[in-house]
Design a protein around this nucleic acid. Structure first.
Lengths: 161, 161
DNA sequence: CCATCAATTGCAACCCAGTTGCAATTGATG
DNA sequence: CATCAATTGCAACTGGGTTGCAATTGATGG
C-alpha cells in the first residue's frame, strides 16, 4: 500500500530519533528506516528509489536529512569511488569518543574504521565487517594528525563476478 | 617566461611518452611533466593551475590527456574524498602484471596498493609511501574478486595541524 | 486544545567535476 | 610534403550536491 519500509523499522527509527531530542519528522523517520533495512550503504539516489513508491520527498530535503543523520551520528557517510556519498546506519553503540567520553589529552582517536567493497560492475557497496581496520594501525609522518581511515577494496562482487 | 615546468622534466616526459609508441603531443608532454614535478597526486584543477601561466589547454583536453596517461599506465588515478580524481605519475617500474608479464592462471593481482593522506583542511593529498598496503592482505567474502585497494587516511596535515 | 515560533521542508536556481558529439587541427608515416 | 588517423577545442550536456528563501510544521507553554 504505502511503501517498502516495514513497520518495525519505522517504529525503531522513531525511537532512535526521539533519542536525539530533535524534531521527529516523517522524512527523518522514513529515511532512517530505509537505512536500517538496507544491509549496505546507500547512495542518495538509492534511498530516493526505495522511498519513491510512497510519498514524495524533495531531493534537497533528502540531502539535508542524510547530512543531519550523519551529524547526529545516527548514520555514517562513506565515500564511494564514483563520487557519490553512501550512507549507512551507525552502530547501535556510538563509540565513546564520538560522544565526548574519551577526550583524554585532547588526542583524537580514529573511528569509523571498517572497510568497504566497491563493485566495479554494478557499483554497489558492501561493508566488510569482518575486517578489523583497527588492527591496521597505519603510521603517518610526524606532524600529521589522522582522524578517520577509509579502506576500500574495488573489484567484482559475487553477483557480477 | 613560459611556465613552472622545468626543462629536464619536459625532456624526461617526452622520453617516457615516446616509449608508448603513441603520438607525442605538447599537451601530453606538459601534463606528464607537471605530474612528474608534483610530489603529490594532483586534481584536474590543480594541473590546470600549474599549466595556465603558459599556453592554454582546454579543460576537456586535459581530462582526456589524464585519462590517456592512466590508460597507458604512465599515471595512477586516485579517488579523493572530495569527489575529484587526483593523478600521480606511475612508478618508474610499471608492475609486471600491469605489462602482461604475470598472467598466470588469469588471476588478477592487486596493484596500486599504496595509501594516501587527505587533509581535511587544505584538501591536499599526500602519498604515504611508507605504508606497505601489500602487507594488509584484506580478506573478502567468497565469490568476491578484489582488484584494487584504496587506503585513505583523513585528518590534518603538518601544515594545517 | 490551541497559539507560537524556531526548525524543517519544498522549490528554483545554481555550482562543479566530468562527459559527449563533432568539426578543425596536427603528429607520424611513406 | 601529402595523407589520414589520432588528437584537440568548442559547446552543450549530465549528475551529484548546494544555496537562498518563502511556506509549512512539530513541540512547547498556556
Amino acid at each position: 500500500m504505502n511503501n517498502l519500509i516495514s513497520d518495525p523499522s519505522l517504529t525503531l527509527a522513531r525511537t532512535r530519533l526521539r533519542g536525539t531530542g530533535a524534531r521527529v519528522t516523517p522524512a527523518r523517520v522514513r529515511v532512517l528506516a530505509v537505512l536500517m533495512e538496507a544491509g549496505q550503504p546507500l547512495s542518495h539516489h538509492e534511498v530516493e528509489q526505495i522511498l519513491s513508491p510512497a510519498a514524495e520527498l524533495d531531493r534537497v530535503t533528502l540531502y539535508r536529512v542524510l547530512d543531519w543523520l550523519v551529524q547526529q551520528r545516527l548514520a555514517h557517510r562513506v565515500a564511494g569511488s564514483d563520487r557519490a556519498w553512501r550512507f549507512s546506519v551507525a552502530g547501535d553503540q556510538p563509540s565513546l569518543e564520538a560522544r565526548g567520553g574519551l577526550k583524554a589529552g585532547g588526542a583524537k582517536v580514529m573511528h569509523e574504521r571498517h572497510a568497504h567493497f566497491h563493485c566495479n560492475d554494478c557499483g554497489k557497496v558492501y561493508c566488510l565487517d569482518s575486517i578489523d581496520a583497527k588492527a591496521l594501525n597505519v603510521p603517518v609522518p610526524i606532524g600529521y594528525r589522522p582522524e578517520t581511515l577509509e579502506l576500500t577494496v574495488k573489484g567484482y562482487c559475487a553477483h557480477c563476478n
